[in-house]
């Protein structure tokens, strides 16, 4: 920004306008300097959170922590780690195919109005408080379906939780395929189905994969949908019908134990540390990957 104009402008503007201009200019300049400071509201807490959780978790985090089960007031994180992975995989096994196909339908197969209904319902699901999904999972799956608190009920609930994120990503991915390609494919005599599989899907895939990653990153950090569906366990699950531990549940159960008797709180911090590492890494991967595939997509348009 250049300086506030000097007196050389006096003959071009009335004195009042010049004075006012000087004031407007200063307001703008100071706002331009001060407003970016708001980003500290995001940056400081993130760094503080990462620093202090690492500080509480790292001194006693060893290989043994990762390979032993929690035992009352000591032990490690093995069972919950395995449980988290199992729940996530089971959830993804449901959410990925259902989400991709749902997004495909709403973007390509359904008339626009019906697509809007599907997208709207997905948005509402994303907006639901997660505790509601926990209630649903408990009443519907654990009780009415009679599955009991189990890896199965937890995994399916988590799948329902992740589903709308993947469906939305898939819908957006298929919708953003250049429409000329559709005209070209259909004009060449392809069926809609063939267009979807051969033309649209390969183009949409990178964006869908980002969506799946993001959904997994969000799902892995969820607590409330699992509390009464997967319940909790210190040991790795061996069948689908057993209650299952998970990192968020361990934090939930242990965070307010007294500090004096055991290492539960430290274990909770270690679980939190693992979650942060996983989530931050996944977010960074998605970002880099999305940036790369966006460039590829731009190449397609250009």
């Amino acid at each position: 920004m250049s300086a506030v104009p000097a007196s050389g402008w006096a003959d071009w503007f009335s004195p009042t306008e010049l004075v006012r201009f000087r004031r407007r200019h200063l307001v703008d300049r100071w706002i331009g300097r001060l407003v970016p400071i708001v980003f500290l509201v995001a940056i400081v807490p993130i760094l503080d959170l990462i620093f202090w959780i690492s500080q509480r978790a790292l001194p006693t985090l060893t290989w043994t922590t990762l390979t032993t089960n929690p035992t009352g007031n000591a032990g490690g994180l093995y069972g919950p780690i395995v449980g988290t992975v199992d729940l996530l995989l089971l959830g993804l096994a449901i959410a990925v195919p259902l989400g991709i196909v749902s997004g495909l339908s709403s973007a390509i197969f359904l008339p626009f109005r019906w697509g809007e209904v599907v997208r709207g319902a997905g948005d509402l699901l994303v907006g639901l408080p997660s505790v509601i999904l926990g209630y649903f999972g408990y009443f519907a799956l654990v009780i009415y379906f009679g599955w009991g608190a189990s890896l199965l009920a937890g995994g399916v609930t988590l799948g329902f939780f992740m589903f709308p994120y993947i469906a939305r990503a898939s819908d957006q991915a298929f919708s953003s395929v250049p429409p000329d390609l559709k005209d070209a494919a259909l004009g060449a005599g392809a069926r809609l189905r063939q267009y979807a599989r051969r033309v649209a899907f390969p183009i949409a895939l990178p964006q869908i994969l980002s969506g799946i990653f993001l959904a997994a990153a969000i799902g892995i950090g969820e607590t409330a949908p699992l509390l009464w569906t997967a319940l909790f366990s210190s040991y790795p699950p061996t069948t689908l019908s057993q209650p299952t531990g998970y990192l968020t549940g361990l934090i939930w159960n242990y965070y307010d134990e007294p500090l004096t008797f055991g290492t539960e709180v430290t274990l909770a911090f270690q679980a939190a540390f693992l979650l942060i590492v996983i989530v931050v890494v996944m977010n960074v991967i998605v970002r880099l990957y999305a940036e790369r595939s966006r460039k590829k997509l731009e190449g397609l348009y250009g």
């Binding site: 250049s2 506030v4 104009p5 000097a6 402008w9 200019h25």
Partner: peptide, 17 residues
């Protein structure tokens, strides 16, 4: 005769004239 790109000149004032 006045250079509009002079460092002393503010673009907002230029645009008002």
């Amino acid at each position: 005769g006045r250079d509009l790109y002079d460092r002393e000149v503010d673009p907002a004032l230029v645009r008002r004239r």
